[in-house]
Design a protein around this nucleic acid. Structure first.
Length: 465
RNA sequence: GGCCCCGUCGUCUAGCGGUUAGGACACUGGCCUUUCACGCCAGCGACACGGGUUCGAGUCCCGUCGGGGUCACCA
């Protein structure tokens, strides 16, 4: 089997959303899995809508996802002379003809067909017409009218289209510029694409393109049309990848999620990026379209957060902490790494984790305490215990480790004839400002003796001893 | 409307003629526990419908219904 060469061919008319990202990902995974090449082509020939800014944004999003092109991206607009050459080849071989119909004429015919509830197809009225010098024209490709075109699609199976359904399509505008269904064939052939893996919205274009491959004498690639993603329309769903990055999603989780949407490997839900490459196969791609489930994506993100080593997670979290009110935050902040370690199982996004970590980084006297929690847990009696605990801890700071703190606390409880449940929540509220959070001993270990003792005392200052 | 594709729990899916139709998210209950999570256990919940073929159909065929795509001098 010749080496696999696939491409992702976005048009820079918008950002990369989940659907496009999945098409790119399946191409990428297929290439990596087979040891082939993954290429990129920027389809920027729609000059009205294409922008350089979108091109850059798409490249950035793909880099974030870890997908890089194995060769310099091909820019479609730079290939105009090749397109013209191919057009000339078809003119020379008589496979195209000039069509002098005006857009208004076609529109009228189309509307008439619609009014009569019949289907419109160009009627070839210009085929064989004599030359009309000076009159503007477009080039139409002459499709076969007999027989059928068969596409053995790797995902969709055998798709048979009667050639009578194929319209003589326009392949070059009045100004001579070539159209999509024509250039895509030329460029894929030029790039040596062996497998065209794209969205199912291109399925009905495929037989037309196959005819153009044949007319040009190019080898036909294998096609694989991926099911579309349903309901990709509002808010986060329609957003570009950048929105997911900003919302605190890990690229590995996004890859995992969109890969599993339409593809599966038995019952496995969680895949590392390496596993995706190892296990991905176009044969396992579903034909039915699927809908986004943001809850499941959040769950997967949490799973990936838990799988990520704390060092790596800390680095990812820094920008989110900076945005969460700690502009000076850096990777060498002494509390960062241990804080992340305590929070790994407690956040489904980096935004949430940054928010939950705030209490670790605020000044002791700036810690805000939840009012409800204060009323419930920081009672006069509890505060008396906390003050005593603070005193006890202040004198036992030599072994300030999780184990050492636990020993000290348990000794205090025994000496005071208390139970842990009497002081645990008051203590947590004093340290964290809320009735939830990591284990008490690990929390104090991260805060250190000075902050821990200070917070216990500060939290009780509303009750005079 | 023509043509094409699709149809298993609410959602993502396993299944490839014989299964108590399995897993995951969400939801409910329980366990663990200093809280919240994590984790573990249990529950809820599906083969769109109708005909065939077959000893036997979620699996094969046809029809109906439903969903999607496409019918540009866009890509």
């Amino acid at each position: 089997m010749p080496q696999v060469r696939v491409r992702f061919a976005p048009s820079p008319t918008g950002v990369l959303h989940l659907g496009g990202a999945r098409t790119a990902l399946f191409n990428y995974l297929f290439a990596r899995h087979t040891g082939g090449q993954f290429l990129l082509r920027i389809e920027d020939t729609d000059k009205e809508r294409s922008t350089e800014a979108f091109t850059q944004a798409i490249l950035e999003d793909m880099a974030w996802m870890g997908m890089r092109s194995d060769e310099e991206p091909v820019v479609q607009s730079s290939r105009l002379s090749a397109h013209r050459e191919a057009l000339q080849q078809l003119i020379d071989s008589g496979k195209v003809y000039k069509c002098y119909c005006t857009p208004e004429e076609r529109e009228a015919a189309r509307q008439k067909a619609e009014a009569e509830k019949t289907s419109y197809q160009y009627d070839r009225r210009c085929l064989g017409k004599p030359e009309q010098p000076g009159v503007p024209f477009v080039w139409r490709f002459q499709m076969p009218t007999e027989g059928e075109t068969v596409v053995d699609d790797l995902v969709q199976g055998r798709v048979v289209t009667p050639n009578s359904e194929l319209e003589d399509l326009v392949i070059a505008r009045q100004d001579g510029s070539p159209l999509y269904n024509f250039v895509v064939v030329i460029d894929d052939a030029f790039m040596g694409i062996t497998h065209v893996v794209r969205g199912k919205d291109h399925l009905s274009n495929t037989p037309k393109q196959v005819q153009i491959y044949r007319a040009l004498g190019y080898p036909e690639p294998v096609f694989a049309h991926l099911p579309l993603i349903l309901g990709l329309s509002k808010r986060l769903r329609s957003a570009g990848l950048g929105a997911y990055r900003d919302a605190g999603y890990l690229p590995s989780a996004v890859s995992n999620y969109i890969a599993r949407l339409g593809w599966s490997h038995g019952d496995q839900e969680i895949f590392t990026e390496e596993e995706l490459i190892e296990k991905f196969d176009l044969a396992d791609v579903n034909r039915a379209e699927g809908a986004l489930n943001l809850d499941k994506m959040a769950w997967l993100n949490q799973q990936h957060i838990q799988m990520t080593p704390p060092e790596q997670l800390a680095a990812l979290l820094v920008p989110f902490l900076q945005k969460a009110g700690f502009p000076e935050m850096s990777l060498d902040h002494p509390r960062l790494l241990p804080a992340v370690a305590t929070m790994r199982a407690r956040a489904s996004t980096l935004v949430e984790m940054a928010e939950n970590c705030r209490f670790y980084f605020v000044d002791d006297d700036a810690l805000e305490i939840d009012e409800a929690a204060k009323g419930k847990h920081l009672t006069q009696e509890a505060c008396a215990h906390l003050r005593a605990l603070a005193d006890a801890l202040a004198s036992t700071t030599e072994d300030w480790t999780e184990a050492g703190i636990e020993t000290a606390v348990r000794q205090f409880i025994a000496a005071q004839n208390l139970q842990l449940k009497h002081i645990a929540q008051p203590c947590r509220v004093a340290l964290v400002g809320a009735p939830k959070g990591p284990g008490l001993y690990e929390t104090m270990a991260v805060l250190g003796p000075a902050s821990s003792v200070a917070r216990l005392r500060l939290a009780c200052s509303h009750h005079n001893p």
